[in-house]
Nucleic acid binder design. Structure first.
Lengths: 241, 241
DNA sequence: GATGATTATTTGGTAGGACCAAATCCTCAA
DNA sequence: TTGAGGATTTGGTCCTACCAAATAATCATC
């Protein structure tokens, strides 16, 4: 059955833009301009229907679009939660695709090589430009790593934390997000693999070699030590996926 | 009106997760395992309804999800086309989020700094490891750039192509994808801005300085030349957004 | 008055139908 | 054979109705 309102809407619509896009842009504006901030909840879908004068289908389409863009977080039977997008949200948005890419030929190797390449440049940068507080952070991370040699879980965590310092030194928020993406994409595969204390000692020695080169302000040595360390790590995990 | 099939379906469903997610995973599997390969078309939405025993609402939601993940390509009035995901698809999937990030405080600057950082490492790598064919590619790209100084559009294209060579030299497919992402995210803002032939000459001189350092196998010189070149480029565009 | 169980309301998820516009397929006359 | 015109297909949009879980409100009991 067809009512007049629907027909009028249908015949009048072609000239206009898509209703859903208008809603998306409006809510987008609210988030960008700060009228909606992180953690706020959107009104119920049925309220938005009336507010924008559109059907719930359109409301849901708009919410779905905003969710895929990382601006909203949806849980069943709960109002959508506003999420101010960060660089981490950007990387997690591609997680689904990356999973497929890693399954392709040498996908993990290609990503790991990129990590080595970028991190080599980061330790070189650290050797040249690390400030006092950066050195302190590195020294503390190295000590924590040493203290955790007998605890597999803690060692993994301190391992990641040590490398994270290099991504933090440039002060650019994109680098730490890249690091977290690397960890979630690469580490997820071979984590929970038990490692011996001897292996942890070798890893820690690799970390110390990098640290020593940095406090010596020796970029070449730092880069060499990092590449050696990561290539050793690669050899131990290459067969586990 | 409520028919029995709908009620049965509804009462039987709660055990499962969201219907749309199940469909997404199933089609995902078909693509990963090769039952659906690049260029194949999905059946019409109305067929999928019957095949999966779900409503068209859910079919469309699943297709939308797969599209945002880069596994499908949708055009109005055409069947969805299967796209085996590449690294470019991964980056384009985050395009929507990046747009917002760039609007935040210093977002463009942060991204441009990352580009400078990565590209500095790439030219250093080129200076150390470029093969003969890489040098040839660089020489040709530089010549094309020189020849296009009087043609704004062609100059932009050859400019991008010259820088692209550095991303290609390591032979890792991720780097070219990163470069294309940089171009689409950064260049899109200030493209179509007319540049004078003098400015193009300066840009070309920057390119030549990088090239000369590379054929001299001088990584420090190459890195310095690249940073100088890109920081000059930044100064000319920083006010245009 | 506090508390726990019961009921009502809210809310996101899903089903299914109707319509449109463009593209495609089909028919049939010239 | 061909091409013009109609019929069918197909994705895009909108609507209403219903379900199940979560939450809010109510009420009986102590």
């Amino acid at each position: 059955m067809l009512n007049e309102a629907q027909q009028d809407e249908a015949t009048a619509r072609p000239a206009e833009r898509r209703a859903a896009d208008a809603v998306v842009m409006e809510i987008e504006q609210d988030i960008v301009t700060g009228r909606l901030t992180n953690g706020d909840t959107l009104p119920p879908e049925r309220d938005l229907m009336g507010r924008f004068g559109i059907s719930r289908t359109v409301v849901r389409e708009a919410i779905a679009t905003l969710t895929t863009r990382g601006l909203l977080e949806c849980k069943p039977r709960h109002r959508p939660i506003v999420r101010s997008p960060g660089y981490d949200a950007a990387f997690s948005a591609v997680g689904g695709v990356v999973v497929h890419l890693l399954k392709q030929n040498n996908g993990v190797k290609a990503l790991f090589d990129v990590r080595i390449f970028l991190e080599a440049a980061l330790v070189r940068h650290a050797a040249l430009h690390a400030r006092k507080e950066d050195i302190v952070a590195l020294r503390e991370a190295l000590a924590a790593n040493r203290a955790a040699i007998d605890d597999p879980v803690a060692f993994d965590n301190t391992d990641v934390a040590f490398h994270a310092v290099f991504y933090a030194i440039p002060g650019n928020p994109i680098f730490p997000a890249v690091h977290r993406a690397f960890v979630s994409w690469l580490f997820g595969h071979w984590q929970s693999m038990p490692r011996s204390a001897e292996q942890n000692l070798a890893y820690h020695a690799g970390h110390k070699a990098i640290f020593d080169a940095i406090i010596d302000r020796d970029p070449e040595g730092a880069e060499t030590a990092l590449k050696s360390h990561l290539e050793e790590a690669w050899e131990t995990v290459r067969g586990t996926f």
